[in-house]
Structures are given as C-alpha cells and as structure tokens.
Amino acid sequence: MLELKNVKKSFGKNKILKGVDINVNKGDVVVILGPSGSGKTTLLRTINFLERADSGTMIFDGKTYDMKKAGKKDVNFIRKNTAFVFQNYCLFNNKTVLQNVTEGLIVGRKVPKAEAEEKARAALEKVGMLEYADYYPSKLSGGMQQRVGIARAVAVSPDIILFDEPTSALDPELVGDVLKVIKKLAKEDITMIVVTHEMSFAEDVANKVIFMADGVVVEEGTPDEIFYRPKEERTKQFLSRIIPMDNYVI
C-alpha cells in the first residue's frame, strides 16, 4: 500500500536520510526504532510532505510519485489520505476539541457540518475524549491533548496514520493512556507507522519493526526477530542500551 524507495534528504551539509526503502502493507503496524538523529522523524515527515525529500520514489495506493517533484495536487491527495500525529500534539489552540477534529473534514474535505460532527464524535469516543468536546486545548493535559490529536487523525479515515513519537513529550504517568488508544486502533486493522522509544509497546503491537541508524535502515523484521534475534551488531548495541531502561507497563 505504501512503498518508499531510496529516499534521501539533507539539511545543509547534514545528510539525514541516505537512501531509505520501506514497505508497508494494508493493516500493518510498523514501528520505527533508532537512536536520535537517525532520521526516523524526518522519514515520517517526508511521507506527509511536511518535509520535501531531495530524491526518492513513493508508491501509494498503486500510484507512483516522485517525492522531490510531486505537484500540489499529488501532495494534497497524499495528505488527504494520510494523517499525522505530532510529538507535541500541535492542536489548533483557537478551536475546541470538537472543532479540532472537524476542521480537516469540513474545510479540508468539504464534508457537511452535521456529518463531520458525527464522525468527530465517534473518533473522540474512541479515544475517550468525547466528554471534553467543548473544551479548548489549553485546558487539557498533555495526554488528553495527544488523544485529541489521535482522534483528529482517525476522523478523516486515512489509509495510513503516521505517529511521530506520540508519547515522548508526555509525563510518564500519561504515556499509558495514549499507548492504550494506539493499541486499540492497531487492533482495528488501521495501518500505521509509529516512531517511538517505547520498546514493550513495539513488541506488543507491531507486526514489523524497522531499526534505523545514521539515515539508513539497518535491519527490519518481526518484533521477535529484532528484539530477540537481531542480526546486525548496530541493532544489538542499541537494544542493549535501551531495553534495561524500559520499565513501563502498558
């Protein structure tokens, strides 16, 4: 359903992505792991064209796009069929929770207001935020804001949801709630790519784990393969540093 080939991106002299290939099938939950600066977030952002790749090919819904040259129309089409969950939520502060979710439907997709609100309420219900529909984001905790961010992504029924470190800006005690919501979505066969540092979550939810370092995919496989039988030295090194630290219970 989504395939990226040889994606490259530099910021100035700094080569962030040095030719990344990934392949995501329908219903997949792909978790991308890797140390900071390995290009995980940048890769995710190039998929949604929040960052323009220097070169690369994207195959999405059977159509091939040049990631450097894709025109406005193509970018809009891809954006309308994907959704993004941001590390620091990025809710619209001048809109209520409900309006945050309906905005993309009403303005971006021309869905009639009543229908949009119905969809938005269903999405908020799913993340357990329906009772806060009329609140402004500034009145909510980080965990609540992120759940609204997820509802905003779910409401547009995207083909794929991209999660950019959805829990790394949260207080530890709020992480669990957000992960629970993502897990629930994973069970509904929603296709997603999740960049995260939550290892036990990755092990539980992902059906494919991609390990990135220094702008390339070092290794990919099932959670079992990556966590218990990693082949590459770089992967082993990374996991040995991370796993003992991971005590979160979901």
Binding site: L50, R79, L91, N93, E103, V107, R152, A153
Partner: peptide, 13 residues
C-alpha cells in the same frame, strides 16, 4: 508554534 500550521496541512488544509 509552526507545528499548528503543519498540523493544518496534515489534515488537508
């Protein structure tokens, strides 16, 4: 925050 503009783009605005 620039993120809100990005979020707007990501939902199709």
């Amino acid at each position: 925050d620039k993120g809100q503009l990005e979020a707007a783009k990501s939902v199709g605005l």
